[in-house]
């Protein structure tokens, strides 16, 4: 348990290597670079969202608006490109900035109402889902030539976000504030941690990441669907927890989340290889996996 406490990313990393190693003996081509590239591409949207969610969870909060944000951002990006005639690369930063703004609003609402963050972001989820449908009722197909080429860039963008998060987690003072708040809020406040500033940044980052997830989704699928990202917030939380971050905050980090996302995506890919198993069993296995990862991290009662 000592290693788990010092490097919570170690267990998920081992789990990934184990599953990946074992899968190679059952399915051909799993131990190859193209497979890994596809894996990162498949997990890109979830990964980017989960990295943002990691910050919020580290600080002891939770962001349930992630999935709805993906749908809303994807629709907004698609409408900007298709109807307003923007270049996709111009639409992306605007959408991401809007996501960050909405995240910051949620943090402000948490501070103003003194409600738990899961409730405020629950309302945020309703709001964004509604807003996405107000932007467009139907899925918007994107015909812009950029989207034909952008599919391969998705994996690299996700990898870059992962790298930046891991490096930032080790060096930014803001992250230390979040760890302190998630570890023991009262103590952190008494020690002079500026809670509102840290939480504002965490929620804004989560919003921006989820919006980027939505943009990546339009790059991948060449369409913006207002119903996209259904239940993604739960998958993101699952990936964060799989990655060894405590759901109560204070321990864990982006590196674990990276491995959590990889394990989750790999298991989903492997389950689709087993053609006999429907999406139902995938979810059951997902639940079991989540449980198996949570149990060892619990404090004894």
């Amino acid at each position: 348990m000592k290693t788990a406490a010092r490097a919570p990313w170690l267990l998920p990393a081992l789990a990934f290597l184990l599953v990946w190693g074992a899968a190679g003996f059952v399915h051909e081509g799993v131990h190859s670079l193209p497979f890994l590239h596809n894996l990162v591409r498949d997990g890109a949207v979830l990964g980017v969202c989960a990295l943002g969610a990691t910050l919020v969870i580290l600080g002891g909060g939770i962001d349930l608006a992630v999935g709805a944000m993906v749908g809303c951002a994807a629709t907004l990006a698609a409408v900007l490109v298709e109807d307003a005639g923007w270049h996709p690369l111009a639409a992306a930063p605007v959408v991401v900035a809007a996501g960050a703004g909405f995240g910051a609003l949620q943090a402000a609402a948490v501070a103003a109402t003194r409600l738990p963050s899961f409730l405020v972001t629950l309302a945020g989820m309703f709001f964004l889902r509604g807003a996405a449908l107000l932007v467009s009722r139907e899925s918007v197909a994107i015909a812009h030539p950029f989207h034909q080429a952008a599919g391969t860039a998705v994996a690299w963008v996700a990898a870059a976000v992962a790298l930046v998060s891991v490096v930032a987690a080790a060096h930014l003072p803001l992250l230390r504030d979040l760890y302190a708040l998630g570890g023991h809020r009262e103590a952190a406040l008494l020690a002079g941690v500026r809670a509102f500033r840290a939480e504002l940044c965490a929620f804004a980052a989560s919003g921006a990441c989820a919006a980027l997830g939505g943009v990546l989704l339009t790059w991948k699928s060449a369409a913006g669907n207002p119903r996209a990202g259904l239940g993604l917030e739960l998958e993101a939380i699952a990936a964060v927890v799989l990655g060894g971050t405590l759901l109560t905050g204070g321990r864990g980090g982006p590196l674990g989340t990276v491995f959590g996302v990889l394990v989750l995506t790999l298991v989903q890919v492997l389950l689709t290889f087993q053609s006999g198993l429907g999406p139902g069993w995938t979810r059951v296995v997902l639940g079991g996996l989540l449980l198996a990862c949570v149990i060892p991290t619990l404090k004894r009662l």
């Binding site: 739960l234 939380i237 699952a238 927890v241 759901l247 429907g278 999406p279 139902g280 069993w281 995938t282 979810r283 059951v284 296995v285 997902l286 639940g287 079991g288 989540l290 449980l291 949570v294």
Partner: peptide, 16 residues
């Protein structure tokens, strides 16, 4: 977390 797990697995079970 506990009910998040049953939320995910539960709908999967219903689908299965």
């Amino acid at each position: 977390v506990a009910t998040l797990i049953t939320l995910t697995a539960g709908r999967g079970l219903a689908q299965a």
